[in-house]
Structure formats: structure tokens, C-alpha cells
């Protein structure tokens, strides 16, 4: 049990990068970008091929981000210059990427277990620090704390970078593009370029997540992106429902939290006797439905309670008044 939860937090921290990308496209740009299913694999594919070819895994990971950025830009171009509707642009790109990913990999699965990866390098680096030995008092001893801690740090660095970026002049313009296009155009912004850039950045993060997941799992597979967009959305929605999204800083934190929480929920769900691995997509869909409906139900309930309180208060006031009236009548007589 402990190991399973531990693993889900590790993976959750890596998936959080993907969820932050989805947050950028869905929430900031208001663009339902389905490219994610494809660009996630593109990240894994580029990193895997380069690593197997002998490239330094860190360089390979950066290259994977670059490939994701390009994929996002193409979706942006389809939408802005080709005037294709956002959903369709994403779907077209997702389908195209399936073939492209196969071409990149040359086969449908590339194993990385015997390769030097970012994950294996970081593990070695961490074990050199000797911190694991110091953490044995937790009672529970995982193989290493390194990946969990370093991936959490990475997720937070990316979160902070996003927070910072969205407050720069360029970031403000991208936010306004997603919020009120008429307005930002009247302030001399080229919304086409801003959308393309935003989608590029979002998919760069998705591809980064994909490349790290491939290295973490020890293989890159052409099917590993299926349903990724829904997982990303689930993370964003769960996070926002639980941690709130009042400000950007809060919202990005919520997304990271949501991604980890999602992994934990899935891990726990899979431990239920009659559920199988194949049910995971159904569970994901149910989680999203649940997370979408729950806040509304809660709101309604709160509203109802407030009403009740107000009614009781009103009745009490009336009662008090009547009491006073009675009292005054009595003193009159």
C-alpha cells in the first residue's frame, strides 16, 4: 500500500507538468486543445530515440520539449491561419501526430530500461548525497526518495515560472487573448501569434511530461498518450475544486495538487477487488464527471443552508417583535 501511494505521488509530480500545460491551453487561452494526446507521446518518442542513439538524456529531454512546442504551434497555425475550429485543429493534430510519433520511433515501443536516463542519473546523484539513509526513520523505506523529491521540485519550479510568466507584459497579453479577444486586439496585440505561442508553450510542457514519464516507466509506447487530455483536465478540475483558483498562483498550485491527487485516487480505485487496469479510463471519466458536478451540488447545498438560516433569523425577529409588542401592550394596560 505504502509503495503504491509513494509511486503515485512520484508519477503525479511528473504528470503535473502535463496538467500545467493543459491549464495553460484550457484555462488561460480558453482553447480546448486535444493535441495533448499526441504531443505527450511525441515527447516520449523524441527522448527515447535520442537516448537510445546515445544523446545525453538531459539534452534529449530538452529536445522533446522543443518537439512538443512545434506540435502546439502547428495546432495554433491550423486554428488561426487556417481558421479551423479549436477542437478540430487539436483533433487533426492529434491524429497526425500518431503517425509522426510512429515514424519518430520506427516501431511502436522502445524500451529504455538498460539506458542511462534522466531518472537513473538523478537517482544516482541523489544516492550520492546519502539523504535516503537519513530518512529511514519514516519507517517506510522506498527504493529512493530522490525521484519523488526532485520531481516535486521540478513541478514547483515550472509552476513558479508559469506564475511569473503570466504576470509579464507578454503573459498578460496571452491571458487577455483567452479572456477578451476584442479588447486585446484594440490594444495592438497580434492575437494569432499570442495563441500560437501559448499553445506551443502548453504542448512543450506536455511533451516534457511525456519524455519524463517514458524515462520513469522505462519505455516509450505509441499508445501511452491515449486519454491524456482527460487526465490533464481531471487534474485541473479536481485541483481547482479542492484548492481553489482565485489567483494564478493559487490555480497553478491547485493543478499540481490535482495531478498528484488524481494519481492517488486512481491507485486506490485499482485496489478495489473487481476493478481492472482496463477500467482506468472509465474511472478517469467518472472522476471528471464527479469533479464537475460536485462543486455545483456543494454550492446549492450551501445556498440552501444560508436560506434556512435567514428564514430562521427572520422568524426569530418576528417572534421577538411580537414579544415586545405583547410586553408593551401589557405595560400599557
Amino acid at each position: 500500500m505504502g509503495t503504491a501511494i509513494f509511486g503515485s505521488i512520484e508519477a503525479g509530480a511528473i504528470y503535473a507538468l502535463m496538467a500545467l500545460g493543459v491549464y495553460l491551453s484550457f484555462r488561460i487561452l480558453d482553447f480546448p486543445d486535444l493535441t495533448v494526446d499526441g504531443s505527450f507521446v511525441t515527447g516520449g518518442a523524441v527522448a527515447a530515440v535520442l537516448i537510445v542513439g546515445g544523446t545525453d538524456p538531459f539534452v534529449a529531454t530538452v529536445a522533446a520539449m522543443g518537439a512538443g512546442f512545434l506540435a502546439g504551434c502547428v495546432t495554433g497555425l491550423l486554428h488561426t491561419k487556417g481558421k479551423i475550429n479549436p477542437l478540430l485543429s487539436g483533433i487533426l493534430m492529434m491524429i497526425a501526430l500518431y503517425s509522426i510519433n510512429l515514424r519518430i520511433m520506427g516501431k511502436s515501443n522502445i524500451p529504455l530500461l538498460s539506458e542511462e536516463t534522466v531518472i537513473s542519473k538523478l537517482t544516482a546523484f541523489w544516492q550520492g548525497l546519502g539523504i535516503d539513509q537519513a530518512l529511514t526513520f519514516f519507517g517506510f523505506v522506498p527504493k529512493t526518495w530522490g525521484i519523488l523529491i526532485l520531481m516535486l521540485i521540478l513541478a514547483f519550479i515550472v509552476k513558479i515560472l508559469i506564475d511569473w510568466f503570466l504576470k509579464t507584459d507578454l503573459g498578460l497579453a496571452i491571458r487577455a487573448t483567452g479572456n477578451n479577444e476584442t479588447m486585446i486586439r484594440s490594444f495592438s496585440a497580434d492575437t494569432d501569434t499570442l495563441k500560437i505561442l501559448g499553445l506551443g508553450l502548453a504542448n512543450a510542457l506536455v511533451a516534457l511530461s511525456g519524455s519524463l514519464i517514458a524515462q520513469y516507466n522505462g519505455f516509450s509506447d505509441v499508445g501511452m498518450g491515449i486519454g491524456m487530455i482527460v487526465i490533464g483536465l481531471a487534474s485541473v478540475i479536481i485541483g481547482e475544486a479542492i484548492f481553489g483558483a482565485k489567483t494564478i498562483i493559487r490555480a497553478t498550485l491547485a493543478v499540481v495538487g490535482g495531478a498528484i491527487l488524481y494519481r492517488i485516487i486512481v491507485t486506490l480505485a485499482l485496489r478495489v477487488e473487481f476493478l481492472e487496469t482496463g477500467d482506468m479510463k472509465l474511472i478517469t471519466a467518472l472522476i471528471v464527471v464527479f469533479a464537475l458536478i460536485l462543486p455545483k451540488v456543494l454550492d446549492k447545498q450551501r445556498e440552501r443552508q444560508r436560506k434556512k438560516k435567514r428564514m430562521l433569523q427572520a422568524r426569530k425577529n418576528e417572534y421577538d417583535k411580537r414579544g415586545e409588542n405583547l410586553a408593551s401592550i401589557k405595560t400599557d394596560s
Binding site: T168, D169, L170, G171, L172, R175, N179, N180
Partner: peptide
Amino acid sequence: APAMTIEENLAIAYTRTKSRGLQKG
């Protein structure tokens, strides 16, 4: 832009004639 604050909206208007880069809004 309704989802952005008053100062952020003003920052966007302020940079109308400038090129928008990575400086603080």
C-alpha cells in the same frame, strides 16, 4: 478583460505602443 485585475488591464493598455516582452506587467 473581466478575469484580470484593474491594474493588469491598465498594464495592457499602457503597453499599447510598446513591444510586449518579459518585463513585469
